[in-house]
């Protein structure tokens, strides 16, 4: 795994139109990005489409990356996530027979301690202050990018209540992160 510094350097080179740097950037980041995308779309064919769109957008927009605002991987993941959620909400082509839907996992995986950034620690602390039900709801929403309808079915909870609950969680997290 490359360090954020190396990825930042590669992104800067890509911004200048360096195709070799772009290939290295892809090699250094694709597994992380694909993990996120696949978790949302749960189908390899759809995830591959989104990967293609996402990296072409990264190639175009690399110059817009601002190292003072986000880690380079977080910036790339954000691009891929937007596209993946759009694809998940849009009309989906029927899956081929061989393309079985991947069984979804509820929670996130574990993260090696040395990879815990300060930002992630702070966020996890704030999420940890929510009630357990709302913690699970929030993480399920983020990692699976489920719409409210799907979430309400999964959690067996009326949509209105779910929406109110989600917004309260987001507000509490915002206030916690600001403090």
């Amino acid at each position: 795994m490359s360090t954020p510094g190396e990825i930042t350097w590669l992104l800067a080179a890509v911004a200048k139109g360096d195709a070799v740097a772009f290939e290295r950037l892809y090699g250094a980041t694709c597994a992380k990005v694909y993990g996120v995308v696949l978790r949302i779309l749960r189908r390899h064919d759809l995830a591959a489409d989104v990967m293609e769109q996402a990296y072409l957008q990264i190639w175009r927009d690399a110059g817009e990356y601002d190292a003072t605002r986000a880690s380079p991987l977080a910036w790339m993941v954000a691009i891929a996530r937007r596209l993946a959620i759009d694809a998940a909400r849009g009309p989906q082509p029927p899956a081929a027979d061989s393309e079985a839907e991947i069984t979804e996992a509820d929670g996130p995986g574990s993260v090696p301690r040395h990879e815990l950034t300060d930002g992630l620690k702070q966020l996890l602390t704030c999420i940890g202050r929510l009630e357990p039900d709302r913690q699970r709801m929030l993480l399920l929403a983020y990692y699976g990018a489920f719409g409210r309808e799907q979430l309400s079915a999964k959690l067996d909870m009326p949509v209105d209540l779910l929406r109110a609950s989600l917004r309260r969680s987001l507000l509490e997290i915002e206030q916690c992160l600001k403090s």
């Binding site: 954000a78 995986g109 992630l120």
Partner: peptide
């Protein structure tokens, strides 16, 4: 996006098919 950005660290990496590149 910045607030939630680092949550991606907790996702298991998955190697995409080589055809994607």
């Amino acid at each position: 996006e910045r607030r939630f950005g680092d949550l991606h660290l907790m996702v298991e990496p998955v190697e995409p098919d080589s055809g994607v590149w």
